[in-house]
Design a protein around this nucleic acid. Structure first.
Length: 123
DNA sequence: GCAGTGACCTCGT
DNA sequence: AACGAGGCCACTG
């Protein structure tokens, strides 16, 4: 089929494996409810240990697309310290925290989750 | 095609 | 142990 628009995030199942974004989404979709993972873990799992920034880029694209935002639990991705660095990119600054709390994720600080208790590795 | 940007990570001081 | 700087990756203008 013709090439899909790349300015808009596409659902993983509708994209090819070659798309880096699609591969990121596929991993994020696997994150169980009440668990979280990090940008670095995802990047490492994709075979690009230094592509953690690109992972955040892919999630940013999701935030701008309401449909994908509902399909992909991007709120379950935090940084190495458990900090909600992407919270400002959600519909409201507190949406990310509220969703995580609703899933039973414990916080060690207002914008920091308990990684030791909820960390999920893609492997 | 070059240069800038960013929801990060790691290694040196 | 805390702070700062560099690097890597994909996308946009």
């Amino acid at each position: 089929m013709p090439d899909a628009p790349r300015s808009r995030p596409v659902h993983a199942s509708a994209s090819s494996d070659a798309d880096f974004y699609a591969r990121v989404y596929r991993v994020v979709e696997r994150i169980p409810e009440g668990r979280v993972t990090t940008y670095g873990r995802i990047a490492r799992h994709l075979g690009a240990p230094r592509a953690s920034r690109a992972v955040g880029w892919a999630l940013k694209a999701v935030a701008s697309d309401p449909v994908s935002a509902l399909e992909i639990p991007c709120h379950r991705v935090v940084n190495r310290e458990g900090r909600l660095t992407g919270r400002l990119h959600f519909v409201t600054p507190t949406a990310m925290e509220e969703r995580l709390r609703a899933e039973g994720v414990a916080f060690t600080a207002p914008d920091r989750v308990d990684l030791a208790a909820h960390l999920w590795d893609p492997a």
